[in-house]
Simulated scan of single mutants.
Amino acid sequence: MKIELRYFASVREAVGLAAEQAQVPEGVATVGDVRAWLRARGGAWAEALAEGRALRMACNHTMTDATTRLTEGCEVAFFPPVTGG
């Protein structure tokens, strides 16, 4: 399945990409699976998307959690929580 990935703020800075298209492997079916698959790239990916790290996720412009199922061509975004003042 082909999906669009977007990275924002400190996640973008850490991984050095704002966006990419990816062909996810068999078995990657949810937003959480995508996060784990990207973490497996190691290095900055593992750190920026670490399991215990506070991270927001969206699928097709809707805030979501790790259990949201992927669909062909969907957009998955990762970004840190935003605080205001």
Results as ranks from 00 to 15, higher is better:
V11C: 08
P25M: 07
A22C: 05
T62N: 11
G52A: 14
V82E: 00
A9C: 14
P81T: 09
Y7L: 14
R35D: 03
H61P: 00
F79L: 12
D65Y: 02
A18I: 09
P81D: 05
L55M: 14
W37D: 04
R41Y: 03
M1R: 12
A77T: 10
S10G: 08
L38V: 13
E75P: 06
V15D: 02
A54H: 06
W45V: 03
E13N: 15
W37C: 08
A77R: 04
R35F: 03
A29E: 13
E72N: 12
Q21P: 07
G27I: 02
V24L: 11
F8A: 10
F78S: 05
E13I: 13
G16Y: 01
R39S: 07
K2F: 01
H61S: 11
E47F: 08
G84I: 14
E13P: 13
H61I: 06
E26P: 11
T67F: 05
A50D: 07
A48Q: 01
E13V: 13
A22E: 02
L70R: 09
P80L: 09
T64Q: 01
T62A: 15
V24G: 04
E20A: 14
A66F: 02
T68V: 15
A36D: 07
A9F: 07
E26K: 12
A22S: 08
E20L: 13
R12L: 03
G27W: 00
P81G: 09
A14D: 01
K2N: 05
F79R: 04
L17N: 07
T68P: 03
G42N: 05
V15F: 02
N60K: 06
L70Q: 08
G52R: 13
A29Q: 13
M57T: 08
A19N: 14
K2D: 03
